[in-house]
Computed example of a mutant assay.
Amino acid sequence: MFYHDDELQYEVEVEEPNPKFAKMLQQAIGGAEGEMRVALQYMFQAFAVPAEKSEYRRLLMETATEELGHIEMLATAVAKNLQGASDEQREAAREDAVIAEMMDSGQPRQALSAGLHAMPVDSNGTPFNGGCVVASGNLAADMYANVMAESTGRLLATRLYEITDDPGMEDMLSYLIARDTMHQNQWHAALETMDDHVPVPNSFPQEKENQDHNYEFMSTYRDEQPDPEERWTQGESVDGNGEFSYGEQPGGGEPDLDEVIEAMHNEIN
């Protein structure tokens, strides 16, 4: 069950509206690093958490709901950057050839389809793709995916921060960056509560793995190369269940395919 409040999670002010920056902010909404991705990712992960792991469900659902608030903040920022831009600002932007091209071919749908508001798309205008949502049903795997999601999200927010010089946008992005810091840390903390979760999934019996190659760094050079003697080629494995080694691809002979079935019509005439 969800409840809505008209108040923004954090204030959004734009002192100098900038339509170019509005397009960039779209990446933080509907991009692969954006808030739609993490909101849905955490939500669908929470849906799969069993009753006996309710603490993780709450962690995921509370964060997913927070991320919905971030979408609302960014959508507000996009609208304020678009609707408040003067004709002089729009024309001044065209003095730069690169910016002029962005203005002409970037996201006309923000005006044509959305009336100068945000859309569920990335900075190129590509609709959000749920295929980037990771919800595997395995808590450990999902937490690692969440660390990556928050890392790339924080990276995007810091890049946007460096691009803008608007004090209001800097303040909003500073808040979002801070939340990304917390979320990275909370997913790491959640992983620390899970005993013996590496390798993921830890429920698969490791004795069924190929014991010759399960801790071997495999060189793919054609010519034999010496062991570089790095942390990942020697010494104890990170999970403590083996020893790293260095080797080459074992080789499996030429492909020997069976004849295809007639119904596929793959014959060569």
Rank of each mutant, 00 (worst) to 15 (best):
1 M>D: 13
2 F>I: 13
4 H>S: 13
5 D>N: 13
5 D>G: 12
6 D>N: 08
7 E>N: 10
7 E>K: 14
9 Q>R: 14
10 Y>G: 08
11 E>V: 11
12 V>Q: 10
19 P>M: 09
22 A>M: 10
25 L>Q: 06
25 L>E: 04
26 Q>D: 07
27 Q>R: 04
31 G>A: 10
34 G>Q: 11
37 R>N: 15
38 V>H: 06
38 V>I: 15
38 V>G: 07
45 Q>F: 03
46 A>N: 05
46 A>G: 15
47 F>Y: 08
47 F>E: 06
50 P>R: 01
51 A>Q: 12
52 E>F: 04
54 S>M: 06
59 L>E: 03
60 L>C: 07
61 M>C: 05
62 E>F: 03
64 A>M: 03
67 E>R: 09
67 E>C: 09
69 G>E: 05
69 G>D: 08
71 I>C: 10
72 E>C: 01
75 A>H: 02
76 T>Y: 06
77 A>Q: 05
77 A>C: 02
86 S>F: 08
87 D>P: 01
89 Q>H: 00
90 R>S: 06
91 E>P: 02
91 E>W: 00
92 A>P: 02
93 A>E: 14
94 R>Y: 00
95 E>Q: 15
96 D>H: 09
96 D>L: 09
96 D>M: 07
98 V>P: 01
98 V>Y: 12
102 M>Q: 09
103 M>V: 09
106 G>H: 09
109 R>M: 13
112 L>S: 13
114 A>W: 12
117 H>Q: 03
118 A>Q: 03
120 P>F: 08
121 V>S: 08
121 V>R: 00
124 N>C: 01
125 G>F: 00
125 G>L: 01
125 G>K: 00
126 T>G: 02
128 F>P: 04
128 F>T: 02
129 N>F: 11
130 G>I: 14
132 C>T: 11
134 V>H: 11
134 V>R: 05
146 N>E: 07
147 V>G: 03
148 M>E: 12
149 A>T: 13
150 E>S: 11
150 E>N: 12
151 S>T: 15
154 R>N: 11
157 A>S: 06
159 R>K: 14
161 Y>V: 07
170 E>I: 05
171 D>T: 15
172 M>A: 14
173 L>D: 03
177 I>A: 10
177 I>E: 11
183 H>K: 01
188 H>N: 15
191 L>S: 06
191 L>R: 07
198 V>I: 15
201 P>F: 01
203 S>Q: 10
203 S>T: 14
205 P>V: 12
208 K>H: 14
211 Q>L: 09
228 P>T: 03
230 E>C: 03
231 R>H: 12
232 W>K: 01
233 T>H: 03
233 T>C: 04
234 Q>F: 04
235 G>Y: 01
237 S>A: 13
238 V>Y: 08
239 D>F: 04
240 G>W: 00
240 G>C: 06
242 G>W: 02
245 S>N: 03
248 E>R: 10
249 Q>H: 14
250 P>I: 05
252 G>A: 10
256 D>S: 14
259 E>M: 05
260 V>F: 15
262 E>K: 10
263 A>N: 09
264 M>K: 05
266 N>K: 13
267 E>P: 00
269 N>T: 15
269 N>P: 15
